[in-house]
């Protein structure tokens, strides 16, 4: 499959994540690497050095799959896109949004502890308003 444009890639990636949302198991793999398909790679020392610090910026390849194996080749979804060096920041901004929305099964930020603490703080002020308030303010200063 050829490489997709960024818009196509993101729309398909959201589809991939949405499909996962309806299931209770599965994996999504995202890979990024330097695009080195058409570039000649000889193992001479000079080439190694040019590899390490190339004169011009190179594009980055992004792949996304739903990690289906050989026996389920028909269900496998493979997406790939190429980011030109100039578009990197714009791409990663959108990428972050898509991933944040898609990875909904991760643990949300736990706020129960804070709530308990705030309740504890509120409780003494409710019991003795004058003294409690003074105490809390004293606690707040350091």
């Amino acid at each position: 499959m050829g490489h997709l444009t960024h818009d196509e890639f993101f729309s398909k990636l959201t589809e991939l994540f949405d499909y996962r949302k309806n299931q209770d198991h599965g994996t999504i793999n995202l890979v990024q690497k330097r695009l080195s398909y058409n570039t000649p790679s000889q193992s001479t020392e000079t080439d190694l050095l040019t590899d390490l610090c190339p004169s011009t910026p190179l594009p980055v390849l992004i792949r996304a799959t739903n990690a289906k194996g050989k026996d389920r080749r028909k269900e496998k979804v493979k997406l790939s896109t190429i980011i030109e060096p100039a578009d990197l920041e714009a791409f990663y901004g959108r990428y972050a949004d898509v991933c944040k929305k898609g990875m909904g099964a991760l643990k949300p930020r736990d706020r129960t502890k804070r709530k308990k603490q705030s309740r504890k703080k509120k409780a003494p002020t409710a019991g003795g308003p004058g003294v409690g308030a003074g105490g809390s303010s004293m606690m707040a200063i350091p």
């Binding site: 996962r20 299931q23 209770d24 198991h25 599965g26 994996t27 999504i28 793999n29 995202l30 890979v31 990024q32 690497k33 330097r34 080195s36 790679s41 590899d51 390490l52 990690a67 991933c99 898609g102 990875m103 099964a105």
Partner: peptide
Amino acid sequence: PQTTRVTTSYFL
């Protein structure tokens, strides 16, 4: 830089 790849896997 030529061969290293970064994989992000999201498991459910």
